[in-house]
Design a protein around this nucleic acid. Sequence first.
RNA 1: GCGUCGGUGGCAGAGCGGUCAAUUGCUGCGGACUGUAAAUCCGCCGCCUUCGGGCUACGGGGGUUCGAAUCCCUCCCGGCGCA
Length: 402
Amino acid sequence: MKPINFKIDQAKNSMRAGAISTLHGEIKTPAFVTVGTKATVKALTPEQVKSLGAQTILANTYHLYLQPGDKIIKQAGGLHKFMNYDGPMFTDSGGFQVFSLGAAFGEGGVTKFAKDGGSADTNSKMPQTEKLAQIDDNGVTFKSHIDGSCHRLDPEKSIDIQHNLGADIIFAFDECTSPAVSYDYQKKALIRTHRWAERSIEAHIKNKTAKCKQGLFGIVQGGQYEDLRQESAHFLAGLDDLAGFGIGGSFSKSDLGQVLRTTTSVLPESKPRHLLGIGEPEDIFLGVEAGMDTFDCVTPTRIARNGTLYTKKGKINILNQKYKEDFSPLEKDCSCYTCTNYTAGYLAHLFRAHEMLGATLASIHNLHFIIKLTDDIRQSILDDSFDSFRQDFLNLYLKTKF
RNA sequence: GCGUCGGUGGCAGAGCGGUCAAUUGCUGCGGACUGUAAAUCCGCCGCCUUCGGGCUACGGGGGUUCGAAUCCCUCCCGGCGCA
């Protein structure tokens, strides 16, 4: 029996509405995957995560390996038991930390997205620091961001850790590249990631128990280059032991949709596709249209903790003066727990007072917003009304964004 | 009343002759955040500005000095001690 099954309920052009079934339940797609890096969705209990409509959580290999250690989580009975969450779970392989603690470390403004137009972002400077990750063809040497101790992660180690963690969907170890890197480097990294995918598979299928419980996804790389994306998708499509695909790495915002379409056109329709680390509302529309099934992103919860909230009319900053005396809900017609029980003025107070309930209420609202959006997108595919839904949503959302 | 210490930008609190429109923290006002190094980070925060600079400022007034938030005199206000 396969640990992961994917069925398509409705497909139109390249997009589809379907369901991924796992041993811990089903994920109706397209779906937003909440991020719970360290076995916790920051500021929320798993019960809150569930009750706001989330279907699944993604945790992180590198972070849990360092703290508390994958052995401890195995001893506790696995990730689900450890954090008291019985829904489907993903674990990322640690490939993103190759980037965030490597190329991007100490580089203010370097993100997965190349800045359109190439202007450097001077708004978020961080002190120049020695990189914490060094890559070679066999793996990555990390200096722990917690205590500076030295650690080695490679495909076998990453898969071993992910076996111990026990998520339903696990990812092959990959190199997430910086968008600033040259074509030649992207290609080099791509080839390395392919070798690592083969090694990840080998390590996975060797473990008979894990093989039956956990589905392994390979990760497509290639940066913003369509030919590299295609090459990568081709390669991974040929690996039968993969249960699905992650689309990783860096993009340029202006041609995200195009690059994704090029990629998915090569991937088999029968397997689920996860877009790693991307999840602004406008990106989800692009992704779904290009045939992506699931999306994880830290944005809803991170910006929530920093005081930014999604509304149908765009993002707002609750710290802005005008919300101090606004005693209506953030959004009048929002059905989330926060909006049905609290006012914008109360949230503004909590954030000004640095009260942690603010982070909780804001996270509930933002996750509800993005999850409801993906649910509505799914429904619009089933109803064959995706185009008009997208147009109505984005007209309102982007128009008042600034 | 005498003695003594002190009065600095919204607050706290540095500075004790030039490099001071004045360290720093907080508050205030904006902004950023895309597989979480993040309840974080970045700006701005006397007034005016064609962003070069200009103007008024460290309790009030007077003085010393080329130059004072910084030294002296005096007044006002506050803390403490003694009557």
